[in-house]
Protein backbone atom coordinates (compact mmCIF):
# COMPACT_ATOMS: atom_id res chain seq x y z
CA UNK A 1 0.00 0.00 0.00
CA UNK A 2 1.56 3.32 -0.98
CA UNK A 3 2.11 5.88 1.72
CA UNK A 4 -0.27 8.83 1.74
CA UNK A 5 1.88 11.84 1.08
CA UNK A 6 1.06 15.51 1.38
CA UNK A 7 0.90 15.73 -2.41
CA UNK A 8 -1.80 13.06 -2.47
CA UNK A 9 -3.86 14.89 0.12
CA UNK A 10 -3.55 18.13 -1.83
CA UNK A 11 -4.54 16.40 -5.05
CA UNK A 12 -7.63 14.89 -3.43
CA UNK A 13 -8.63 18.25 -1.96
CA UNK A 14 -8.07 19.99 -5.28
CA UNK A 15 -10.19 17.38 -7.07
CA UNK A 16 -13.00 17.70 -4.54
CA UNK A 17 -12.79 21.49 -4.72
CA UNK A 18 -13.01 21.61 -8.52
CA UNK A 19 -15.85 19.09 -8.54
CA UNK A 20 -17.76 21.09 -5.93
CA UNK A 21 -17.19 24.54 -7.38
CA UNK A 22 -17.61 23.98 -11.14
CA UNK A 23 -21.37 23.24 -11.12
CA UNK A 24 -22.01 26.35 -9.04
CA UNK A 25 -20.61 28.68 -11.69
CA UNK A 26 -23.78 28.56 -13.71
CA UNK A 27 -27.25 27.20 -13.21
CA UNK A 28 -27.76 26.57 -16.92
CA UNK A 29 -28.76 22.90 -17.40
CA UNK A 30 -26.64 22.65 -20.53
CA UNK A 31 -23.53 23.80 -18.70
CA UNK A 32 -24.10 21.17 -16.03
CA UNK A 33 -24.76 18.58 -18.71
CA UNK A 34 -21.35 19.35 -20.24
CA UNK A 35 -19.73 18.88 -16.83
CA UNK A 36 -21.43 15.52 -16.41
CA UNK A 37 -20.19 14.51 -19.87
CA UNK A 38 -16.66 15.49 -18.82
CA UNK A 39 -17.06 13.20 -15.81
CA UNK A 40 -18.51 10.37 -17.88
CA UNK A 41 -15.82 10.47 -20.57
CA UNK A 42 -13.17 11.06 -17.94
CA UNK A 43 -14.27 7.81 -16.32
CA UNK A 44 -14.31 6.00 -19.68
CA UNK A 45 -10.89 7.41 -20.54
CA UNK A 46 -9.40 6.38 -17.19
CA UNK A 47 -10.86 2.90 -17.68
CA UNK A 48 -9.39 2.64 -21.19
CA UNK A 49 -6.09 3.88 -19.90
CA UNK A 50 -5.75 1.03 -17.40
CA UNK A 51 -5.68 -1.34 -20.36
CA UNK A 52 -4.34 0.81 -23.20
CA UNK A 53 -2.09 3.22 -21.39
CA UNK A 54 -0.51 0.80 -18.95
CA UNK A 55 -0.39 -2.56 -20.70
CA UNK A 56 -0.41 -1.40 -24.32
CA UNK A 57 -3.60 -3.14 -25.43
CA UNK A 58 -5.21 -0.44 -27.55
CA UNK A 59 -8.85 -1.37 -27.42
CA UNK A 60 -11.13 0.27 -29.97
CA UNK A 61 -14.07 -1.76 -28.80
CA UNK A 62 -14.87 -0.36 -25.37
CA UNK A 63 -18.43 0.32 -26.51
CA UNK A 64 -19.21 -3.39 -25.99
CA UNK A 65 -18.50 -3.11 -22.25
CA UNK A 66 -20.33 0.19 -22.04
CA UNK A 67 -23.30 -1.53 -23.67
CA UNK A 68 -23.10 -4.49 -21.30
CA UNK A 69 -23.22 -2.11 -18.33
CA UNK A 70 -26.12 -0.12 -19.71
CA UNK A 71 -28.13 -3.18 -20.75
CA UNK A 72 -27.50 -5.23 -17.59
CA UNK A 73 -28.69 -2.60 -15.13
CA UNK A 74 -31.57 -1.53 -17.37
CA UNK A 75 -32.84 -5.07 -17.91
CA UNK A 76 -32.58 -5.81 -14.18
CA UNK A 77 -34.48 -2.62 -13.42
CA UNK A 78 -37.17 -3.06 -16.07
CA UNK A 79 -37.75 -6.81 -15.70
CA UNK A 80 -37.10 -7.31 -11.98
CA UNK A 81 -37.15 -3.89 -10.37
CA UNK A 82 -33.58 -4.25 -9.13
CA UNK A 83 -31.86 -1.07 -8.04
CA UNK A 84 -29.44 0.33 -10.64
CA UNK A 85 -26.74 0.37 -7.97
CA UNK A 86 -26.90 -3.40 -7.81
CA UNK A 87 -27.28 -3.50 -11.59
CA UNK A 88 -24.16 -1.37 -11.87
CA UNK A 89 -22.11 -3.92 -9.93
CA UNK A 90 -23.67 -6.84 -11.85
CA UNK A 91 -23.00 -5.13 -15.17
CA UNK A 92 -19.45 -4.40 -14.14
CA UNK A 93 -18.82 -8.00 -13.12
CA UNK A 94 -20.45 -9.34 -16.27
CA UNK A 95 -18.35 -7.00 -18.42
CA UNK A 96 -15.22 -8.07 -16.55
CA UNK A 97 -16.04 -11.74 -17.22
CA UNK A 98 -16.66 -11.04 -20.91
CA UNK A 99 -13.44 -9.02 -21.06
CA UNK A 100 -11.53 -11.93 -19.56
CA UNK A 101 -13.10 -14.24 -22.15
CA UNK A 102 -12.04 -11.90 -24.95
CA UNK A 103 -8.65 -11.04 -23.52
CA UNK A 104 -7.55 -14.62 -22.99
CA UNK A 105 -7.49 -15.68 -26.66
CA UNK A 106 -6.48 -12.18 -27.75
CA UNK A 107 -3.67 -11.82 -25.28
CA UNK A 108 -1.14 -12.98 -27.82
CA UNK A 109 -2.24 -10.33 -30.30
CA UNK A 110 -0.28 -7.13 -30.48
CA UNK A 111 -0.77 -3.58 -31.67
CA UNK A 112 -3.06 -3.31 -34.67
CA UNK A 113 -4.18 -6.93 -34.47
CA UNK A 114 -5.59 -6.46 -31.01
CA UNK A 115 -7.14 -3.17 -32.07
CA UNK A 116 -8.93 -4.83 -34.98
CA UNK A 117 -9.99 -7.76 -32.81
CA UNK A 118 -11.48 -5.43 -30.20
CA UNK A 119 -13.42 -3.68 -32.95
CA UNK A 120 -14.65 -6.98 -34.33
CA UNK A 121 -15.94 -7.97 -30.89
CA UNK A 122 -17.69 -4.65 -30.34
CA UNK A 123 -19.32 -4.68 -33.76
CA UNK A 124 -20.47 -8.25 -33.33
CA UNK A 125 -21.95 -7.27 -29.98
CA UNK A 126 -23.77 -4.36 -31.59
CA UNK A 127 -25.20 -6.60 -34.30
CA UNK A 128 -26.35 -9.13 -31.70
CA UNK A 129 -28.00 -6.50 -29.52
CA UNK A 130 -29.73 -4.98 -32.54
CA UNK A 131 -31.20 -8.36 -33.41
CA UNK A 132 -32.01 -9.71 -29.95
CA UNK A 133 -35.73 -9.37 -29.30
CA UNK A 134 -35.55 -9.92 -25.53
CA UNK A 135 -33.73 -6.60 -25.16
CA UNK A 136 -36.08 -4.96 -27.68
CA UNK A 137 -33.53 -5.05 -30.51
CA UNK A 138 -33.15 -1.84 -32.43
CA UNK A 139 -36.21 -0.27 -30.76
CA UNK A 140 -34.32 0.31 -27.55
CA UNK A 141 -35.56 0.44 -23.97
CA UNK A 142 -37.00 3.54 -22.33
CA UNK A 143 -36.41 3.36 -18.59
CA UNK A 144 -39.62 3.76 -16.58
CA UNK A 145 -39.88 7.07 -14.76
CA UNK A 146 -39.84 6.36 -11.06
CA UNK A 147 -39.50 8.25 -7.83
CA UNK A 148 -36.76 10.81 -7.47
CA UNK A 149 -34.60 8.72 -5.14
CA UNK A 150 -30.99 7.72 -4.70
CA UNK A 151 -32.00 4.07 -4.48
CA UNK A 152 -33.35 4.11 -8.03
CA UNK A 153 -30.71 6.56 -9.26
CA UNK A 154 -33.26 8.84 -10.87
CA UNK A 155 -33.29 12.54 -10.26
CA UNK A 156 -35.09 15.57 -11.62
CA UNK A 157 -32.10 17.84 -11.23
CA UNK A 158 -28.58 17.38 -12.55
CA UNK A 159 -26.66 17.87 -9.33
CA UNK A 160 -27.08 14.30 -8.00
CA UNK A 161 -25.83 12.95 -11.33
CA UNK A 162 -22.89 15.31 -11.10
CA UNK A 163 -22.05 14.02 -7.63
CA UNK A 164 -22.41 10.37 -8.70
CA UNK A 165 -20.30 10.57 -11.83
CA UNK A 166 -17.49 12.49 -10.18
CA UNK A 167 -17.52 10.09 -7.23
CA UNK A 168 -17.21 7.18 -9.67
CA UNK A 169 -14.44 9.01 -11.50
CA UNK A 170 -12.73 9.62 -8.18
CA UNK A 171 -12.88 5.91 -7.35
CA UNK A 172 -11.50 5.00 -10.77
CA UNK A 173 -8.66 7.48 -10.36
CA UNK A 174 -7.86 6.05 -6.94
CA UNK A 175 -7.77 2.54 -8.41
CA UNK A 176 -5.52 3.80 -11.17
CA UNK A 177 -3.32 5.54 -8.63
CA UNK A 178 -3.09 2.38 -6.60
CA UNK A 179 -2.30 0.26 -9.65
CA UNK A 180 0.37 2.67 -10.80
CA UNK A 181 2.19 2.40 -7.48
CA UNK A 182 1.63 -1.27 -6.84
CA UNK A 183 3.53 -4.28 -8.08
CA UNK A 184 0.79 -4.83 -10.67
CA UNK A 185 1.44 -1.40 -12.13
CA UNK A 186 5.10 -2.21 -12.64
CA UNK A 187 4.12 -5.51 -14.25
CA UNK A 188 1.74 -3.65 -16.58
CA UNK A 189 4.31 -1.16 -17.74
CA UNK A 190 6.99 -3.78 -18.06
CA UNK A 191 4.68 -5.72 -20.38
CA UNK A 192 3.86 -2.62 -22.39
CA UNK A 193 7.52 -1.71 -22.82
CA UNK A 194 8.68 -5.16 -23.74
CA UNK A 195 6.67 -8.32 -23.60
CA UNK A 196 9.72 -10.56 -23.99
CA UNK A 197 11.69 -8.95 -21.22
CA UNK A 198 8.70 -8.97 -18.88
CA UNK A 199 8.06 -12.59 -19.67
CA UNK A 200 11.69 -13.54 -19.17
CA UNK A 201 11.61 -11.92 -15.73
CA UNK A 202 8.89 -14.33 -14.75
CA UNK A 203 5.86 -12.07 -15.15
CA UNK A 204 2.80 -13.98 -16.26
CA UNK A 205 2.00 -11.60 -19.10
CA UNK A 206 -1.28 -13.22 -20.11
CA UNK A 207 -2.57 -13.05 -16.56
CA UNK A 208 -1.57 -9.40 -16.15
CA UNK A 209 -3.20 -8.43 -19.42
CA UNK A 210 -6.40 -10.18 -18.40
CA UNK A 211 -6.41 -8.36 -15.07
CA UNK A 212 -5.99 -5.03 -16.86
CA UNK A 213 -8.76 -5.86 -19.33
CA UNK A 214 -11.13 -6.87 -16.52
CA UNK A 215 -10.58 -3.74 -14.44
CA UNK A 216 -10.96 -1.61 -17.54
CA UNK A 217 -14.17 -3.36 -18.62
CA UNK A 218 -15.61 -3.11 -15.11
CA UNK A 219 -15.33 0.67 -14.99
CA UNK A 220 -16.52 1.05 -18.57
CA UNK A 221 -19.65 -0.94 -17.71
CA UNK A 222 -20.20 1.15 -14.59
CA UNK A 223 -20.13 4.22 -16.82
CA UNK A 224 -22.66 2.48 -19.09
CA UNK A 225 -25.08 2.03 -16.20
CA UNK A 226 -24.65 5.66 -15.25
CA UNK A 227 -25.37 6.71 -18.82
CA UNK A 228 -28.57 4.61 -18.94
CA UNK A 229 -29.78 6.20 -15.68
CA UNK A 230 -28.86 9.67 -16.84
CA UNK A 231 -30.40 9.56 -20.31
CA UNK A 232 -33.17 7.10 -19.32
CA UNK A 233 -33.24 5.55 -22.77
CA UNK A 234 -30.88 3.05 -24.31
CA UNK A 235 -30.70 1.40 -27.71
CA UNK A 236 -27.87 -0.36 -29.56
CA UNK A 237 -27.22 2.77 -31.59
CA UNK A 238 -26.56 4.95 -28.56
CA UNK A 239 -24.75 2.60 -26.15
CA UNK A 240 -22.86 0.22 -28.45
CA UNK A 241 -21.98 2.44 -31.38
CA UNK A 242 -18.50 2.58 -32.79
CA UNK A 243 -18.19 6.36 -32.42
CA UNK A 244 -18.29 5.85 -28.66
CA UNK A 245 -15.23 3.62 -28.77
CA UNK A 246 -13.45 6.24 -30.85
CA UNK A 247 -14.29 9.02 -28.40
CA UNK A 248 -13.01 6.95 -25.50
CA UNK A 249 -9.63 6.41 -27.16
CA UNK A 250 -9.61 10.05 -28.12
CA UNK A 251 -9.91 11.46 -24.60
CA UNK A 252 -7.17 9.17 -23.33
CA UNK A 253 -4.82 9.78 -26.24
CA UNK A 254 -5.31 13.53 -26.34
CA UNK A 255 -4.80 13.99 -22.63
CA UNK A 256 -1.96 11.53 -22.42
CA UNK A 257 -2.21 7.76 -22.35
CA UNK A 258 -0.35 6.08 -19.54
CA UNK A 259 -0.80 8.94 -17.10
CA UNK A 260 -3.40 9.09 -14.34
CA UNK A 261 -4.76 12.55 -15.09
CA UNK A 262 -4.33 12.48 -18.86
CA UNK A 263 -7.73 10.99 -19.70
CA UNK A 264 -9.46 13.40 -17.29
CA UNK A 265 -7.68 16.32 -18.91
CA UNK A 266 -8.56 14.96 -22.35
CA UNK A 267 -12.24 14.75 -21.41
CA UNK A 268 -12.15 18.24 -19.93
CA UNK A 269 -10.77 19.58 -23.21
CA UNK A 270 -12.70 17.53 -25.77
CA UNK A 271 -16.15 17.26 -24.22
CA UNK A 272 -16.88 21.01 -24.09
CA UNK A 273 -15.65 21.29 -27.70
CA UNK A 274 -17.89 18.50 -28.95
CA UNK A 275 -20.94 19.39 -26.84
CA UNK A 276 -20.86 23.08 -27.73
CA UNK A 277 -20.11 22.35 -31.39
CA UNK A 278 -23.17 20.10 -31.52
CA UNK A 279 -25.33 22.63 -29.70
CA UNK A 280 -24.20 25.60 -31.77
CA UNK A 281 -24.24 24.03 -35.19
CA UNK A 282 -27.12 21.64 -34.68
CA UNK A 283 -28.06 19.50 -37.65
CA UNK A 284 -25.98 21.56 -40.06
CA UNK A 285 -22.87 20.77 -38.09
CA UNK A 286 -23.48 17.05 -38.07
CA UNK A 287 -20.23 15.31 -37.43
CA UNK A 288 -18.25 18.52 -37.10
CA UNK A 289 -17.03 17.56 -33.64
CA UNK A 290 -15.76 14.28 -35.04
CA UNK A 291 -14.03 16.13 -37.89
CA UNK A 292 -12.24 18.18 -35.26
CA UNK A 293 -11.43 15.03 -33.31
CA UNK A 294 -9.96 13.47 -36.43
CA UNK A 295 -7.71 16.46 -37.01
CA UNK A 296 -6.71 16.74 -33.35
CA UNK A 297 -5.85 13.08 -33.07
CA UNK A 298 -3.74 13.11 -36.25
CA UNK A 299 -1.87 16.17 -34.99
CA UNK A 300 -1.32 14.65 -31.56
CA UNK A 301 -0.16 11.35 -33.02
CA UNK A 302 2.26 12.99 -35.44
CA UNK A 303 3.54 15.88 -33.34
CA UNK A 304 3.21 14.74 -29.77
CA UNK A 305 2.41 11.04 -29.29
CA UNK A 306 2.54 11.39 -25.51
CA UNK A 307 -0.60 13.51 -25.45
CA UNK A 308 -0.97 16.92 -23.90
CA UNK A 309 0.23 15.83 -20.47
CA UNK A 310 3.49 14.87 -22.15
CA UNK A 311 4.26 18.58 -22.35
CA UNK A 312 4.33 18.81 -18.60
CA UNK A 313 5.58 15.42 -17.56
CA UNK A 314 9.13 15.28 -18.70
CA UNK A 315 10.14 12.68 -16.19
CA UNK A 316 10.01 9.19 -17.69
CA UNK A 317 7.57 6.84 -16.03
CA UNK A 318 10.17 4.12 -15.82
CA UNK A 319 13.87 4.64 -15.60
CA UNK A 320 15.97 2.50 -17.81
CA UNK A 321 17.39 2.12 -21.24
CA UNK A 322 15.74 4.15 -23.93
CA UNK A 323 13.95 6.04 -21.19
CA UNK A 324 13.18 9.15 -23.20
CA UNK A 325 9.81 10.67 -22.53
CA UNK A 326 8.09 9.38 -25.66
CA UNK A 327 9.38 5.88 -25.33
CA UNK A 328 8.24 5.27 -21.81
CA UNK A 329 5.19 7.35 -21.15
CA UNK A 330 3.32 6.05 -24.14
CA UNK A 331 4.75 2.92 -25.58
CA UNK A 332 7.97 1.40 -26.55
CA UNK A 333 7.21 -0.67 -29.57
CA UNK A 334 10.38 -2.34 -30.44
CA UNK A 335 10.39 -4.48 -33.48
CA UNK A 336 10.17 -7.73 -31.59
CA UNK A 337 7.14 -7.17 -29.40
CA UNK A 338 5.05 -5.91 -32.29
CA UNK A 339 5.00 -9.27 -33.92
CA UNK A 340 1.51 -10.57 -33.98
CA UNK A 341 2.40 -13.60 -32.04
CA UNK A 342 4.02 -12.88 -28.76
CA UNK A 343 6.45 -15.04 -26.95
CA UNK A 344 4.28 -18.10 -27.36
CA UNK A 345 2.62 -19.65 -30.33
CA UNK A 346 5.55 -20.14 -32.64
CA UNK A 347 4.37 -23.15 -34.52
Amino acid sequence: MPKISRKTVLTVLLYLGIVAITPLCSKAPFYRHVLIMVGLYGLLGVAWNIMGGYTGLYSFGQSAYFGIGAYTSTMLLVKAGVSPWIGMICGGILAAIVAAGVAYPCSRLRGPYFTIASQAVARTFQILMTNWDYVEGAIGIPLPLMADTWWLMQFKGKMPYHIIIFSLLGIAILVCYYIERSRTGYYFRAIRDSEEVASSLGIDTVRQRIIAAMVSAFFTAVAGTFYAQYVLYIDPESVTQHALSIEIVMVAAVGGAGTIWGPVLGAAILMPISQYARALLGGAGRGIDLILYGIIIMLIAVVRPTGILGFFQRKPAIEGEGGDDIGTTITASTGTDDEVRGSAGQS
Binding site: P112, G287, Y293
Partner: peptide, 30 residues
Protein backbone atom coordinates in the same frame (compact mmCIF):
# COMPACT_ATOMS: atom_id res chain seq x y z
CA UNK B 1 0.83 12.21 -43.21
CA UNK B 2 1.93 8.59 -43.42
CA UNK B 3 5.58 9.43 -44.06
CA UNK B 4 5.76 11.21 -40.72
CA UNK B 5 4.65 8.19 -38.73
CA UNK B 6 6.62 5.45 -40.49
CA UNK B 7 9.24 5.51 -37.78
CA UNK B 8 6.78 6.38 -35.05
CA UNK B 9 5.42 4.18 -32.34
CA UNK B 10 2.65 1.66 -32.97
CA UNK B 11 0.09 3.72 -31.12
CA UNK B 12 0.89 6.82 -33.12
CA UNK B 13 0.48 4.82 -36.35
CA UNK B 14 -2.84 3.41 -35.20
CA UNK B 15 -4.10 6.78 -34.01
CA UNK B 16 -3.00 8.60 -37.14
CA UNK B 17 -4.71 6.36 -39.65
CA UNK B 18 -7.67 6.11 -37.31
CA UNK B 19 -7.85 9.87 -37.04
CA UNK B 20 -7.73 10.03 -40.82
CA UNK B 21 -10.65 7.62 -41.04
CA UNK B 22 -12.72 9.61 -38.53
CA UNK B 23 -11.86 12.80 -40.36
CA UNK B 24 -12.73 11.47 -43.82
CA UNK B 25 -15.99 9.79 -42.83
CA UNK B 26 -17.28 12.84 -41.00
CA UNK B 27 -16.05 15.23 -43.63
CA UNK B 28 -18.13 13.28 -46.12
CA UNK B 29 -21.01 13.44 -43.67
CA UNK B 30 -20.59 17.19 -43.38
Amino acid sequence: LIKRILNGTRISQILTTFGLSVFMANMAMF
